[in-house]
Design a protein around this nucleic acid. Structure first.
Lengths: 314, 314
DNA sequence: GCGGATCGTGCTCATATGAGCAGCATCGGG
DNA sequence: CCCGATGCTGCTCATATGAGCACGATCCGC
């Protein structure tokens, strides 16, 4: 397109989009035929001079979702728009809302839903509406008794999701990570715990998030790991955790010994699931999100625009 | 619009604008009639959920131009888009380009064009194309012999504009501001000077900018005023200058004594012109721009989006 | 200078969209 | 409980837009 056509296409776009003239009227104004105007507008669009944004907290970015499906092999993806977002909290809220919406629209409705816990999951539970489904049994897929602060959020999350669906929750009565391997084996040998884990393995769908490998992690907050433990994991290449298990950028377990002391579904079990919905948002989680998607830990990803673009460009 | 319709309108907008589906297809996807979809889209637009931007250095904001004409009584207005502008220089360049475009498209082509001088005018002269008009006589409307730095830009501006139009330039051989009133009278009495000013009074159109009342002013740079002179003018309420004459926010002369020593057209002569094009852009000039428009110094304004919005909101 | 290839143009025709209207549901006052 | 007012729905019809095509201009190699 030459200079003169480029300028004309801008003039045409102004009249078309800002003054909502018809292409015919624009043609008269600029002394062009309406077909020429149509072509100019098409070119302006195609060259990216026209930017159309949907400004709404619930807005999604369908073209990016499509690319995630096509280029990253995901079964499905939900990407919330970052347009107009000012704080990390707002982004987190939008993503949680989108995850809640996705869960609500799932067909067939899962009879058993395995869930992890953490800030993201808790927020999703709060964004779900009463009656989002009926008769869903929610089961925890990893250990989650908080040790110090915010006791019970893990339980509150699962129970909240279940109650709002008019179903029941099955809690995993175990710490996330145990200090000694023997204790972990003993806990797993417990009839109740073993039963819950079996139930978790049989879930129709899983909903989980991922944590960044830094000091803000819920595992540090909950007392399962110390800040220096996390530093050590980072030194070994950890980018974050999924259901309490720390992985590197290829999705491999960073510290097998630690992993062996972690209660709940293994990552391979999660990978084998037919429907695993990961909800991961925010700048801090770009690296984990990448690892999760690359290593096939989820089949569905709910995320924000910036994280999605990171996955696609990287 | 209730919550559910709002959400639907967002979903519809996503499919319509991002996936370019037809309203009918969207209807099928969302189980709505195509009329409902059309109404949802109209609502989304009307409620401002859809934002269409034209991203191009030459893009204008026609709705704002219309408001300037309607609400501020201008005969015409040109507002350049600020979208994607990163520096003040870029904004200045866009505005100068727009002014050059406006001048080029002026019908009837002015036979005599009165111009001021300064950074903005110089930039406009550079953005004009060779042959932008034919046979325009350009005449300076205020004194403009630079005293120290950048000698000759005032002359270069007028000559440049004239040459590119295949016409001639008539320079006003006088300083902008004289130190003594007597000298000013003497200069004005000079046959050549008086002739130029008479010619300037008879111009068909005027093109001028405005300066901010601060130390970056060309009058300081050129040595006509000291920094403390400007401080004094500001203390008296000056917001900026037009053709070397400092005005307050109502467009009144701030310092009549200084004004009497300033050579060139008076503001009242400028106000009486049938076509006066003011080109004013940038954050620093919001206040002068306001004064110029309020007091009717120009009939046409070329400016940037932010300045225009300032004029409309204030 | 000639003939083919290429491109842009303005048409025809099919499709998509918007305006306006009659029918129906919903709501609140009598 | 009834009835008119209100607002939403899905239609008809007019208009705006897009797809595809035939024509003529322009460019380039021979």
């Amino acid at each position: 397109m030459d200079e003169i056509d480029e300028l004309l296409s801008i003039r045409a776009a102004e009249l078309y989009y800002e003054e909502n003239k018809t292409q015919d009227e624009i043609g008269q104004a600029l002394r062009l035929t309406r077909w020429k105007v149509g072509r100019l507008l098409a070119q302006a669009k195609q060259q990216g001079f026209i930017r159309i944004e949907i400004l709404h907290p619930r807005a999604r970015r369908l073209p990016i979702e499509r690319r995630l499906r096509d280029e990253r092999g995901l079964a499905d993806a939900v990407v919330v728009s970052s347009a107009g977002v000012t704080s990390a909290e707002e982004l987190q809220a939008r993503t949680a809302q989108a995850a809640a919406d996705y869960l609500t629209s799932l067909r067939p409705v899962p009879r058993t839903l395995g869930v992890s816990w953490g800030r993201t999951l808790f927020e999703i539970s709060q964004h779900l509406r009463n009656g989002w489904a009926s008769g869903v049994n929610v089961v925890q897929i990893n250990g989650g008794v908080s040790l110090n602060r915010r006791p019970g959020t893990a339980a509150a999350t699962a129970v909240g999701i279940a109650q709002k669906a008019g179903g029941s929750a099955t809690l995993l009565p175990s710490p996330a990570i145990l200090e000694r391997l023997e204790t972990k084996h003993a806990i797993e040998a417990d009839r109740v715990v073993a039963g819950v884990i079996d139930l978790a393995r049989s879930a129709d769908a899983y909903l989980f998030s991922a944590g960044a490998a830094d000091h803000t992690s819920v595992h540090v907050e909950s007392g399962y790991l110390s800040e220096s433990d996390v530093d050590l994991l980072v030194a070994k290449g950890a980018v974050g955790d999924v259901v309490g298990r720390y992985i590197d950028s290829d999705g491999n377990i960073v510290d097998p010994a630690l992993d062996a002391r972690t209660v709940g579904l293994t990552l391979d079990e999660l990978r084998a699931a037919s429907l695993g919905v990961a909800v991961i948002a925010g700048r801090a989680k770009h690296a984990v999100a990448d690892a999760v998607v690359r290593s096939g830990l989820c089949s569905v990803l709910v995320t924000d625009e910036a994280t999605a673009l990171h996955l696609l460009d990287g």
